[in-house]
Simulated assay, not measured.
Amino acid sequence: MHTPAFRLAALAGLATLLVASIAPAHGFVDVLDQPAATSALASQRLLLATAVAGKRLVAAGARGHIIFSDDLGRSWQQAKVPVSADLTALHFVDAKSGWAVGHEGVVLHTRDGGATWTLQLDGRRANKLVLDRVQHLPAGTDPTVLEALKSEADRAMSDGPSRPFLDVWFANAREGYVVGAYNLIFHTRDGGESWEPWVDRTENPRFYHLYGIRGGSDGVYVAGELGLMLHLDPATGRFAAVQTPYEGSYFGLLTKPGLVLAYGMRGTAYRSRDGGAHWEQVDTGITASITGSQVLPDGRLLLCSQAGDVLVSDDDGVHFRRVATKQPMPYTGLAVEGDVLVLSGLRGVRVESIRLPR
């Protein structure tokens, strides 16, 4: 199986080394049992995701660090987080309610705009839920599919709670999804109070990693490695495979009415205007892996890359232009609040007042 250089090898490997370097001398403490340590340098360390909660800026990353700012990034406070697992993605549905996901199968929830977080799911419970699911699939399930699912569930149990969630998306305050490595996908209808594994509802027989999930009026899409693209069929409740021209890894996607844009390695991006039936390549003008995206309130599209590029499009991805930033670094995510651009990366968080070109 292809191992993506960005999400699992580079970031996860670096984050794991960071955590290992601060392990207590007297013995191992599981990151699921250890709250995130307070650090005055949290805003300057590895951060993998950014989001906006109302007017508040939020960022999350290594060691379970989540920080937030109520003054457009002039100062940052550290949130109370019950785990020290590395966090990979953030999503808010309003100014108060949001979710963070990460390594060790962690799903966190906040009700106060990111100041305090509670654990909704971890890898220990996730593994058991998946195993129980595949052990109780209907008798008519294809034997080959059933055997593959059971084998993968057993492998996950043997590996322990190590498999990461890599993205999270909620349609509203009640219904949402988390996706991750080796076909991990969970669904909730009650705001995360309970989670149901959907590992048997994806057309992903090789258990490719699922990197990104987004949805909207045109449906819900999942992007993954080796060109994997899935689209939720509301009639069957299953994610069906969508053919795209690309065989490399997609690291994420963005959606808006009438548009799906998937992006990934070496500046690659493809867009579809007809629900995934046809795809056309986008000339991003860059060769670095694209790591983050956002649809602005006015419909324009933003992308960032691990080489420090920021791109904007005002024609639904037909063309992209570079946005100059004062302190570029390898970026992992971005978000916008008004004229403020907040970017996460290997050296923490950068906030710049900027007017995007039209």
Rank of each mutant, 00 (worst) to 15 (best):
L259I: 05
R300F: 04
R266M: 11
F251Q: 03
A269K: 10
S293C: 11
H278D: 11
V295D: 06
A307K: 02
G299C: 14
V260N: 05
Q281M: 11
H278A: 11
L254V: 01
G292L: 02
Y250C: 07
A307S: 13
P257C: 11
Q294G: 00
G252Q: 04
L311A: 05
I286Q: 11
R271D: 01
I286L: 03
L261C: 03
P257S: 06
L303D: 08
V312N: 07
I290G: 06
L302N: 13
D283N: 14
G264A: 13
Y263C: 04
G275F: 01
A262Q: 02
Q306W: 04
V295S: 12
G258L: 06
R273Q: 11
A262F: 03
L303P: 11
G252H: 05
L301C: 12
E280W: 13
C304Y: 01
T291N: 00
L301P: 08
R300A: 14
L254C: 01
L303S: 01
R266G: 03
P257W: 08
G275L: 03
V260P: 03
D298I: 07
G248Q: 09
L303I: 01
A269F: 01
L301Y: 02
S289C: 06
T287M: 07
W279S: 14
H278K: 15
Q281V: 15
I290E: 00
A269T: 10
V310F: 01
R300P: 05
S249W: 05
